[in-house]
Design a protein around this nucleic acid. Sequence first.
DNA 1: AAATAAGTCAAGCGTTTGTTTGAAATGTCT
DNA 2: AGACATTTCAAACAAACGCTTGACTTATTT
Lengths: 215, 215
Amino acid sequence: MRRKSRTGDGDGNTRQRILDAAERLLAEKSYHAVSTRMITEAAEANTAALHYHFGTKEAVVQAIFERRLGPINRKRIKLLDAFENQQEPDLEEVLKAFIGPTLMLNASEGERYFKMLSSNISMDPSEELRRFSFDFYREVGEKFVRLIARVCPHLTPEELFWRMGCVYGAMVYIRADNGRLQLILGHELSFRNDTRGLEMMARFLAAGLKAPAVF
Amino acid sequence: MRRKSRTGDGDGNTRQRILDAAERLLAEKSYHAVSTRMITEAAEANTAALHYHFGTKEAVVQAIFERRLGPINRKRIKLLDAFENQQEPDLEEVLKAFIGPTLMLNASEGERYFKMLSSNISMDPSEELRRFSFDFYREVGEKFVRLIARVCPHLTPEELFWRMGCVYGAMVYIRADNGRLQLILGHELSFRNDTRGLEMMARFLAAGLKAPAVF
DNA sequence: AAATAAGTCAAGCGTTTGTTTGAAATGTCT
DNA sequence: AGACATTTCAAACAAACGCTTGACTTATTT
């Protein structure tokens, strides 16, 4: 029998439970639609525990990102650096190096939630959340863009910008996996089988980037 | 001198002012980050006026969509229907027919805000807002998907699904124009010049869809 | 076993949320 | 000008918001 009140059992993993609960809720709802009370109730913790461990609601998201994104970005940088001294890197491989680590997150339920959550944060228009994306994605993002620009010398800065918008959009939309496309297509597919998905995305995006310039 | 209190002047355009204010705010912030009070204050209207004219906060968004999306979707359907009896429609043209009317929204400030707002709503993970997208986009979305599936017989349903995810992602991300990519690329471009942008997007996405299947 | 630190608790802080009320002001019609 | 419907108003509703408090329980150290 699961006890409803956890009075005084102090098992010391409250911090983790809060992170896990927030991770799930933020995958299902936008940041401003999730309250600290919803998080702590789902975590079977006290409201004050959240502020004791993290300080603010925003800091909870910060902690979620720090927990998951460190390993991911290290992997991305390592993979991208391997292309840096290469004469003519294969575009599909570059794309897989950049997208793969953020897409192949199926080792745990929490990873799957983080995949969606991080995508939601990356699309949120609110100013407060825009800083987030910048702080966490700037380094690897700049590395990626430099590499793409080198592999795509046929594109002007303007056209590169628009095509990068398509690339980022595809990444964010597929990682969000919000279920809208399924409704239109009418079948029960999802963006979860990411080993196959990564191949298909890389094929699509590489062909898009390689296409002759319009201007 | 602009009077702060609009007591009793009853100029009868309160409804419009509320829609305009909500349109701007929802382009800048997510649905749950915008309150009815923020909307009515920006519209220089009374809080009760919003509920008098619309009933609920959600109905305001509904009204915004009805005001703008009717003409847009009629145009899309007309353009797409022209391909229906065509033997081999040109893929870039099909994409321009579908994307164009939702991207070329620069006739007024309100249209530009709606472009961003509608994209934000289309990406919001909240269940309540998911219905929205379905109700307003289903018909034209299904028409578009059928057409793409016909032009792309080399793709399995699974691969078509992933590539459509890339297409939708690019559309939504570029229309949102949330400024994150500019930060990474470091220059002052934007997704606002949409006559050129539409050409570049169609080129990219058509090449992606036409690429040989992976599976 | 006493002292200190770390964590959890119910309760409440002031503020904001979406929405409602009933009266007052305006517009329209005869 | 009088009557009736439409619109706007200040004020308030209960509920929920992020966050804080101070007492209390557990864990660690000595």
